[in-house]
Simulated scan of single mutants.
Amino acid sequence: MMLTTHVLAGLALALPVVVFVPELAPAAVVAGGVGGAFPDFDMYFGHRRTFHFPVYYTALAVPAVGVAVTVPQLLTITVAVGLAAAALHCLMDIFGGGLELRPWEGRSERAVYDHYHGRWIAPRRLIRYDGSPEDLLLAGGFAVPTVLLLDGPVVVLVAVLLGISFVYVVLRRWLADLAPTVFSKVPEPIEEYVPDRYLE
């Protein structure tokens, strides 16, 4: 799914803190956004394998949330929301398309790498591919409660994320056709960092 969808999902995970522990809402919102984005920091090196840990993030998030509910402090809330957002990111990717330049073709059976079991998890394709119309719909679904419960800069951020999402959805298939042309011409020192899928 789109990085923007993951960030919006992370922001939505912070909403219980906004409601029940409002004084810690800013920290929870930042943790949710960063945690939702963090796994995709591996976009250009070992994507969905280097920073994607579907089992470990979840295993850490469950007790962290329990501690945060019991002892709602800055550190416990921040850690719990950040880990939960990272875990949700990885689980969402499982329900999306495979790891390929044109995931609508359904050729890849690699969604997210499971380090615990030492194997790739196959994509479920409920959201057909990142940048699909249903991906945009999901992003909007996460955005609605966030906008209703928060205000100020967060609402502006949500609007920007939805705008970027919309443009990406419109251009997604065209960008896949353009990528091999663009990335085949990068300077040699950078070439080793270009994922193979961008050259398909």
Rank of each mutant, 00 (worst) to 15 (best):
M1E: 10
M2G: 06
L3N: 09
H6W: 05
G10D: 01
A12L: 13
A14Y: 01
V17W: 08
V18L: 09
V18S: 07
F20I: 15
E23H: 10
V29P: 04
V29S: 04
V29A: 09
V34T: 04
V34W: 01
F41H: 04
M43G: 08
G46K: 11
R48A: 05
R48N: 07
T50M: 13
P54F: 04
Y56D: 07
T58I: 10
T58Y: 03
A64L: 10
A64W: 08
V65Y: 04
G66P: 13
A68Y: 08
T70L: 15
T70Q: 11
Q73M: 14
I77W: 04
V81Y: 00
G82L: 06
L83E: 01
L83M: 02
L83G: 00
A84S: 11
A85I: 00
A85Q: 00
A86M: 11
L88I: 02
L88T: 03
L91E: 10
D93I: 02
D93S: 03
I94E: 09
R102W: 01
E105N: 11
S108F: 02
R110Y: 07
R110S: 09
V112S: 00
H115R: 11
H115W: 14
H117R: 12
H117K: 12
G118F: 06
W120T: 06
A122R: 13
I127L: 15
D130V: 05
D130E: 13
G131P: 07
P133E: 10
E134I: 04
L136Q: 07
L137F: 11
G141R: 05
P145T: 12
T146P: 02
L148C: 12
L148R: 06
D151P: 01
G152Y: 03
P153Q: 01
V154Y: 07
L157P: 02
G163H: 08
I164H: 07
Y168A: 14
Y168H: 10
Y168R: 06
V170T: 12
L171S: 12
R172S: 15
L175Y: 09
D177N: 13
A179Q: 12
F183G: 13
S184H: 10
I190R: 10
E192G: 10
V194P: 09
P195T: 13
Y198W: 13
L199A: 14
L199K: 13
